[in-house]
Design a protein around this nucleic acid. Structure first.
Lengths: 151, 151
DNA sequence: TATTGTTATACTCTATAACTATA
DNA sequence: TATAGTTATAGAGTATAACAATA
Protein backbone atom coordinates (compact mmCIF):
# COMPACT_ATOMS: atom_id res chain seq x y z
CA UNK A 1 0.00 0.00 0.00
CA UNK A 2 1.50 3.29 -1.10
CA UNK A 3 -0.14 6.66 -0.73
CA UNK A 4 -1.46 7.88 -4.07
CA UNK A 5 0.78 10.64 -5.38
CA UNK A 6 0.01 13.65 -7.54
CA UNK A 7 2.98 12.79 -9.76
CA UNK A 8 4.47 9.45 -10.70
CA UNK A 9 8.17 8.74 -10.44
CA UNK A 10 8.87 9.12 -14.12
CA UNK A 11 7.04 12.34 -14.81
CA UNK A 12 9.32 15.01 -16.25
CA UNK A 13 11.19 17.10 -13.72
CA UNK A 14 9.41 20.24 -14.88
CA UNK A 15 6.05 18.92 -13.66
CA UNK A 16 7.11 17.74 -10.24
CA UNK A 17 5.96 19.69 -7.21
CA UNK A 18 9.30 19.59 -5.42
CA UNK A 19 11.12 20.88 -8.43
CA UNK A 20 8.50 23.49 -9.27
CA UNK A 21 8.90 24.88 -5.77
CA UNK A 22 12.65 25.18 -6.34
CA UNK A 23 12.30 26.86 -9.73
CA UNK A 24 9.44 29.14 -8.74
CA UNK A 25 11.41 30.13 -5.66
CA UNK A 26 14.39 31.31 -7.70
CA UNK A 27 12.08 33.05 -10.14
CA UNK A 28 10.08 34.74 -7.38
CA UNK A 29 13.32 35.94 -5.77
CA UNK A 30 14.54 37.37 -9.07
CA UNK A 31 11.24 39.12 -9.82
CA UNK A 32 11.09 40.61 -6.35
CA UNK A 33 14.70 41.80 -6.62
CA UNK A 34 13.94 43.41 -10.01
CA UNK A 35 11.06 45.41 -8.59
CA UNK A 36 12.92 46.44 -5.43
CA UNK A 37 16.10 47.46 -7.26
CA UNK A 38 14.79 50.91 -8.27
CA UNK A 39 14.27 51.59 -4.54
CA UNK A 40 17.85 50.57 -3.79
CA UNK A 41 16.65 47.62 -1.74
CA UNK A 42 17.45 43.92 -1.93
CA UNK A 43 14.93 41.25 -0.94
CA UNK A 44 16.76 40.85 2.37
CA UNK A 45 16.52 44.58 3.10
CA UNK A 46 12.80 44.52 2.40
CA UNK A 47 12.32 41.50 4.62
CA UNK A 48 14.25 43.09 7.46
CA UNK A 49 12.39 46.40 7.21
CA UNK A 50 9.11 44.47 7.28
CA UNK A 51 10.10 42.56 10.39
CA UNK A 52 11.22 45.73 12.16
CA UNK A 53 7.98 47.46 11.19
CA UNK A 54 6.00 44.58 12.72
CA UNK A 55 8.01 44.57 15.94
CA UNK A 56 10.20 47.54 16.69
CA UNK A 57 12.96 47.34 19.28
CA UNK A 58 14.04 43.74 18.67
CA UNK A 59 17.73 42.87 18.90
CA UNK A 60 19.80 41.91 15.88
CA UNK A 61 19.94 38.36 17.19
CA UNK A 62 16.14 38.17 17.43
CA UNK A 63 15.78 39.55 13.91
CA UNK A 64 18.36 37.10 12.60
CA UNK A 65 16.45 34.22 14.19
CA UNK A 66 13.18 35.44 12.67
CA UNK A 67 14.73 35.62 9.21
CA UNK A 68 16.64 32.36 9.50
CA UNK A 69 20.04 34.03 9.25
CA UNK A 70 23.16 33.94 11.39
CA UNK A 71 23.71 37.00 13.55
CA UNK A 72 26.95 37.71 11.65
CA UNK A 73 25.01 38.35 8.46
CA UNK A 74 22.61 40.65 10.27
CA UNK A 75 25.47 43.05 11.06
CA UNK A 76 26.13 43.96 7.41
CA UNK A 77 22.42 44.06 6.64
CA UNK A 78 21.79 46.57 9.42
CA UNK A 79 24.99 48.45 8.49
CA UNK A 80 23.63 49.05 5.00
CA UNK A 81 20.23 50.23 6.15
CA UNK A 82 21.69 52.37 8.91
CA UNK A 83 24.05 54.10 6.46
CA UNK A 84 20.98 55.05 4.44
CA UNK A 85 19.19 56.32 7.56
CA UNK A 86 16.47 53.69 7.25
CA UNK A 87 17.05 52.05 10.63
CA UNK A 88 18.65 53.15 13.87
CA UNK A 89 20.65 51.18 16.41
CA UNK A 90 19.32 52.34 19.77
CA UNK A 91 20.44 51.28 23.21
CA UNK A 92 18.51 48.19 24.23
CA UNK A 93 16.50 48.93 27.38
CA UNK A 94 17.06 45.51 28.92
CA UNK A 95 20.51 44.39 27.67
CA UNK A 96 23.50 46.65 27.21
CA UNK A 97 25.14 44.19 24.82
CA UNK A 98 22.25 44.40 22.36
CA UNK A 99 20.89 47.04 20.00
CA UNK A 100 17.21 47.84 19.74
CA UNK A 101 16.56 48.23 16.01
CA UNK A 102 14.09 50.96 15.08
CA UNK A 103 12.66 52.27 11.82
CA UNK A 104 13.05 55.87 10.70
CA UNK A 105 10.19 57.84 9.13
CA UNK A 106 12.08 57.71 5.85
CA UNK A 107 12.01 53.92 6.07
CA UNK A 108 8.28 53.88 6.70
CA UNK A 109 7.75 55.83 3.49
CA UNK A 110 10.11 53.60 1.53
CA UNK A 111 8.45 50.51 2.97
CA UNK A 112 5.12 51.61 1.49
CA UNK A 113 6.74 51.75 -1.92
CA UNK A 114 8.44 48.42 -1.34
CA UNK A 115 5.08 46.85 -0.43
CA UNK A 116 3.67 48.06 -3.71
CA UNK A 117 6.63 46.46 -5.48
CA UNK A 118 5.85 43.22 -3.65
CA UNK A 119 2.17 43.51 -4.62
CA UNK A 120 3.31 43.85 -8.19
CA UNK A 121 5.52 40.78 -7.96
CA UNK A 122 2.69 38.80 -6.39
CA UNK A 123 0.25 39.90 -9.09
CA UNK A 124 2.72 38.69 -11.70
CA UNK A 125 2.59 35.16 -10.32
CA UNK A 126 -1.13 34.99 -9.57
CA UNK A 127 -2.09 36.55 -12.92
CA UNK A 128 -3.03 33.19 -14.55
CA UNK A 129 -5.39 32.34 -11.67
CA UNK A 130 -8.94 33.60 -11.12
CA UNK A 131 -10.04 34.92 -7.73
CA UNK A 132 -11.07 31.57 -6.23
CA UNK A 133 -7.96 29.84 -7.51
CA UNK A 134 -5.70 32.57 -6.19
CA UNK A 135 -7.26 32.26 -2.74
CA UNK A 136 -6.92 28.47 -2.82
CA UNK A 137 -3.32 28.77 -3.99
CA UNK A 138 -2.53 31.14 -1.13
CA UNK A 139 -4.23 28.83 1.36
CA UNK A 140 -2.31 25.76 0.18
CA UNK A 141 0.99 27.64 0.08
CA UNK A 142 0.49 28.83 3.65
CA UNK A 143 -0.34 25.33 4.80
CA UNK A 144 2.70 23.81 3.11
CA UNK A 145 4.98 26.60 4.36
CA UNK A 146 3.59 26.21 7.85
CA UNK A 147 4.25 22.50 7.84
CA UNK A 148 7.80 23.13 6.61
CA UNK A 149 8.38 25.33 9.65
CA UNK A 150 8.44 28.67 7.84
CA UNK A 151 6.61 30.77 10.39
CA UNK B 1 -12.25 49.24 -9.34
CA UNK B 2 -9.38 47.04 -8.24
CA UNK B 3 -9.15 43.31 -8.72
CA UNK B 4 -9.91 41.50 -5.46
CA UNK B 5 -6.72 40.13 -4.00
CA UNK B 6 -6.07 37.10 -1.85
CA UNK B 7 -3.98 39.24 0.51
CA UNK B 8 -4.29 42.86 1.50
CA UNK B 9 -1.34 45.22 1.44
CA UNK B 10 -0.76 45.18 5.16
CA UNK B 11 -0.88 41.45 5.78
CA UNK B 12 2.30 40.14 7.40
CA UNK B 13 5.06 39.21 5.01
CA UNK B 14 4.88 35.59 6.10
CA UNK B 15 1.37 35.22 4.66
CA UNK B 16 1.98 36.80 1.28
CA UNK B 17 2.07 34.58 -1.78
CA UNK B 18 5.09 36.26 -3.36
CA UNK B 19 7.10 35.92 -0.21
CA UNK B 20 5.94 32.37 0.49
CA UNK B 21 7.18 31.39 -2.96
CA UNK B 22 10.60 32.86 -2.14
CA UNK B 23 10.84 31.17 1.26
CA UNK B 24 9.45 27.83 0.12
CA UNK B 25 11.86 27.92 -2.80
CA UNK B 26 14.90 28.24 -0.57
CA UNK B 27 13.53 25.59 1.75
CA UNK B 28 12.74 23.20 -1.13
CA UNK B 29 16.25 23.69 -2.49
CA UNK B 30 17.78 22.94 0.90
CA UNK B 31 15.64 19.84 1.46
CA UNK B 32 16.45 18.50 -1.99
CA UNK B 33 20.17 19.14 -1.47
CA UNK B 34 20.01 17.32 1.88
CA UNK B 35 18.51 14.22 0.31
CA UNK B 36 20.83 14.23 -2.70
CA UNK B 37 23.98 14.78 -0.65
CA UNK B 38 24.39 11.08 0.31
CA UNK B 39 24.50 10.32 -3.42
CA UNK B 40 27.22 12.89 -3.95
CA UNK B 41 24.92 14.98 -6.12
CA UNK B 42 23.88 18.61 -5.95
CA UNK B 43 20.48 19.82 -7.15
CA UNK B 44 22.12 21.07 -10.33
CA UNK B 45 23.70 17.69 -11.02
CA UNK B 46 20.35 15.98 -10.56
CA UNK B 47 18.66 18.47 -12.85
CA UNK B 48 21.29 17.99 -15.54
CA UNK B 49 21.17 14.20 -15.36
CA UNK B 50 17.38 14.39 -15.65
CA UNK B 51 17.56 16.58 -18.73
CA UNK B 52 20.14 14.32 -20.38
CA UNK B 53 18.01 11.27 -19.57
CA UNK B 54 15.04 12.91 -21.29
CA UNK B 55 17.01 13.92 -24.36
CA UNK B 56 20.37 12.30 -24.93
CA UNK B 57 22.90 13.80 -27.32
CA UNK B 58 22.14 17.47 -26.71
CA UNK B 59 25.00 19.97 -26.75
CA UNK B 60 26.19 21.75 -23.62
CA UNK B 61 24.74 24.97 -25.00
CA UNK B 62 21.32 23.38 -25.45
CA UNK B 63 21.42 21.92 -21.94
CA UNK B 64 22.48 25.29 -20.52
CA UNK B 65 19.53 26.96 -22.26
CA UNK B 66 17.14 24.33 -20.92
CA UNK B 67 18.36 24.85 -17.38
CA UNK B 68 18.54 28.63 -17.61
CA UNK B 69 22.32 28.72 -17.14
CA UNK B 70 25.15 30.27 -19.11
CA UNK B 71 27.20 27.83 -21.16
CA UNK B 72 30.26 28.72 -19.05
CA UNK B 73 28.64 27.22 -15.98
CA UNK B 74 27.72 24.08 -17.88
CA UNK B 75 31.41 23.30 -18.46
CA UNK B 76 32.18 22.78 -14.75
CA UNK B 77 28.92 20.95 -14.21
CA UNK B 78 29.70 18.45 -16.97
CA UNK B 79 33.33 18.26 -15.81
CA UNK B 80 32.20 17.07 -12.40
CA UNK B 81 29.82 14.45 -13.74
CA UNK B 82 32.28 13.27 -16.37
CA UNK B 83 35.01 12.83 -13.73
CA UNK B 84 32.62 10.51 -11.89
CA UNK B 85 31.83 8.60 -15.09
CA UNK B 86 28.18 9.67 -15.01
CA UNK B 87 28.14 11.42 -18.37
CA UNK B 88 30.28 11.23 -21.50
CA UNK B 89 31.28 13.95 -23.94
CA UNK B 90 30.87 12.33 -27.35
CA UNK B 91 31.58 13.84 -30.76
CA UNK B 92 28.50 15.69 -31.94
CA UNK B 93 27.24 14.16 -35.19
CA UNK B 94 26.24 17.48 -36.73
CA UNK B 95 28.66 20.06 -35.29
CA UNK B 96 32.34 19.45 -34.62
CA UNK B 97 32.48 22.38 -32.18
CA UNK B 98 29.88 20.79 -29.89
CA UNK B 99 29.79 17.77 -27.59
CA UNK B 100 26.91 15.34 -27.53
CA UNK B 101 26.27 14.64 -23.85
CA UNK B 102 25.31 11.07 -23.02
CA UNK B 103 24.43 9.21 -19.83
CA UNK B 104 26.37 6.18 -18.61
CA UNK B 105 24.68 3.07 -17.20
CA UNK B 106 26.09 4.04 -13.83
CA UNK B 107 24.26 7.35 -14.11
CA UNK B 108 20.99 5.64 -14.96
CA UNK B 109 21.22 3.65 -11.75
CA UNK B 110 22.15 6.70 -9.70
CA UNK B 111 19.33 8.67 -11.29
CA UNK B 112 16.81 6.11 -9.99
CA UNK B 113 18.08 6.71 -6.49
CA UNK B 114 18.06 10.47 -7.03
CA UNK B 115 14.44 10.30 -8.16
CA UNK B 116 13.55 8.51 -4.95
CA UNK B 117 15.30 11.29 -3.04
CA UNK B 118 13.21 13.81 -4.97
CA UNK B 119 10.04 11.80 -4.22
CA UNK B 120 10.98 12.00 -0.58
CA UNK B 121 11.49 15.74 -0.73
CA UNK B 122 8.18 16.19 -2.50
CA UNK B 123 6.38 14.04 0.06
CA UNK B 124 7.81 16.23 2.80
CA UNK B 125 6.13 19.29 1.34
CA UNK B 126 2.82 17.71 0.37
CA UNK B 127 2.48 15.84 3.68
CA UNK B 128 -0.01 18.33 5.17
CA UNK B 129 -2.30 18.02 2.13
CA UNK B 130 -4.81 15.27 1.38
CA UNK B 131 -4.95 13.63 -2.05
CA UNK B 132 -7.31 16.13 -3.67
CA UNK B 133 -5.47 19.09 -2.23
CA UNK B 134 -2.10 17.76 -3.36
CA UNK B 135 -3.41 17.37 -6.90
CA UNK B 136 -4.88 20.86 -6.86
CA UNK B 137 -1.64 22.27 -5.45
CA UNK B 138 0.34 20.59 -8.22
CA UNK B 139 -2.08 21.87 -10.85
CA UNK B 140 -1.90 25.46 -9.60
CA UNK B 141 1.89 25.35 -9.26
CA UNK B 142 2.22 24.13 -12.85
CA UNK B 143 -0.06 26.85 -14.10
CA UNK B 144 1.80 29.58 -12.23
CA UNK B 145 5.19 28.20 -13.29
CA UNK B 146 4.02 27.95 -16.87
CA UNK B 147 2.85 31.55 -16.88
CA UNK B 148 6.19 32.64 -15.40
CA UNK B 149 7.94 31.02 -18.36
CA UNK B 150 9.43 28.06 -16.50
CA UNK B 151 8.98 25.39 -19.14
C1' DT C 1 30.89 37.15 -38.77
C1' DA C 2 28.62 34.14 -35.29
C1' DT C 3 28.69 30.16 -32.20
C1' DT C 4 30.65 26.15 -29.01
C1' DG C 5 33.40 25.07 -25.54
C1' DT C 6 36.89 26.67 -22.50
C1' DT C 7 39.61 29.44 -19.16
C1' DA C 8 40.41 33.22 -16.12
C1' DT C 9 38.81 36.79 -13.26
C1' DA C 10 36.10 39.28 -10.21
C1' DC C 11 32.20 39.83 -7.46
C1' DT C 12 28.58 38.33 -4.40
C1' DC C 13 26.91 35.10 -0.73
C1' DT C 14 27.50 32.29 2.76
C1' DA C 15 29.72 29.67 6.63
C1' DT C 16 32.99 29.61 10.30
C1' DA C 17 35.97 31.03 13.80
C1' DA C 18 37.54 34.34 16.98
C1' DC C 19 37.43 38.60 19.62
C1' DT C 20 34.96 42.29 23.06
C1' DA C 21 31.72 43.65 26.10
C1' DT C 22 28.36 42.44 28.64
C1' DA C 23 25.03 38.90 31.08
C1' DT D 1 30.14 30.22 31.49
C1' DA D 2 27.11 31.88 27.92
C1' DT D 3 25.36 35.47 24.80
C1' DA D 4 25.17 39.99 21.49
C1' DG D 5 27.60 42.23 18.31
C1' DT D 6 31.60 42.58 15.45
C1' DT D 7 35.45 41.41 12.32
C1' DA D 8 38.14 38.61 9.24
C1' DT D 9 38.62 34.89 6.19
C1' DA D 10 37.74 31.21 3.22
C1' DG D 11 34.57 28.74 0.22
C1' DA D 12 30.75 28.30 -2.99
C1' DG D 13 28.28 30.18 -6.48
C1' DT D 14 27.68 33.48 -10.26
C1' DA D 15 28.61 36.85 -13.97
C1' DT D 16 31.67 38.67 -17.47
C1' DA D 17 35.18 38.90 -20.82
C1' DA D 18 38.27 36.79 -23.80
C1' DC D 19 40.30 33.01 -26.70
C1' DA D 20 40.63 28.78 -30.08
C1' DA D 21 38.14 25.86 -33.09
C1' DT D 22 34.51 25.53 -36.08
C1' DA D 23 30.14 27.05 -38.38
Amino acid sequence: MSKPSSTDDNSPLSERVGFLLVKLGFCATDRLAERLAPLGLGARHFELLSYVADAEGLSQQQLADAMGLHRNQMVKLVDGLEARKLVERRPHPADRRAHAIALTDKARELLSEARRAADDQEAYFTAPLDGDEAREFARLLRRVADHAGLS
